[in-house]
Design a protein around this nucleic acid. Sequence first.
DNA 1: AGCAAAATCGAGAATTATTCTCATTTTATT
DNA 2: AATAAAATGAGAATAATTCTCGATTTTGCT
Lengths: 127, 127
Amino acid sequence: MNYSRQRETVYDVLRSTKDHPSADWIYGECKKIIPNIGLATVYRNLEQLVAQGKAIKVPVGQDKDRFDADVSLHVHGACPVCGKVWDEEVSAPLNDALKAECEKNHSDGYSLTFFRVCGECKAKQEQ
Amino acid sequence: MNYSRQRETVYDVLRSTKDHPSADWIYGECKKIIPNIGLATVYRNLEQLVAQGKAIKVPVGQDKDRFDADVSLHVHGACPVCGKVWDEEVSAPLNDALKAECEKNHSDGYSLTFFRVCGECKAKQEQ
DNA sequence: AGCAAAATCGAGAATTATTCTCATTTTATT
DNA sequence: AATAAAATGAGAATAATTCTCGATTTTGCT
């Protein structure tokens, strides 16, 4: 694998946010830095970052894939209305039980997402 | 919401399996019962069943959406190689911790999937 | 049963996210 | 500087899903 400014930029952009962005948002941000970067390049590099273990795809059942540069095992929250994704802090007992289960069933990892209408969407619904 | 044979068939097919099938597999099965059923009808009815709370979409980060007629909160396993999805039995402490967390953060539900290469794919890899 | 309104359907077109192709450019090596 | 391998940008191709629309089915009413 050779160095490329595009790949570095994709990684920088992904690390710059905790918003679990989609590929096209990352593409937009990269364009601000490398105006003629191609969308396919962004997809290619995201794929490689995931393969290298430097990023993960967050499966939240939305239309678009979401990416995260935080590859540690952690829990997500997601709004089923607007699709927003955030990191969710969970209790120590839950974390311990997850870790234990993972070891017990020899899993490579897990994905845990709690679904909850976010404050913004709840406010809109009540209007 | 009116009755329709197509919707009943989609629901019957979905309930008949524990394989967490994709829309096109369900379409294939429905065709055996109603040969001229349309793919859009299957998608439409799956969407309605989900909206009614009679089915869930299982987010496993695969290309295709997976559906499940078991709407109780339960844990999934998924093979990152072939995409197979199964129900995973977990320890009582984990179940309790999940339920507690859900109540604590007022979530509508959660999705927990453990990733693990399935026996079949592991056997192939070792050849 | 007969009728009108509303719901649903089937077929195929349209949309959307993602992947692929290929000629060109960049990177690493000598 | 010459070369091979890797990466790129642009746009075409693919694949899952959604939309459109005229035809059919279901429901509620008489």
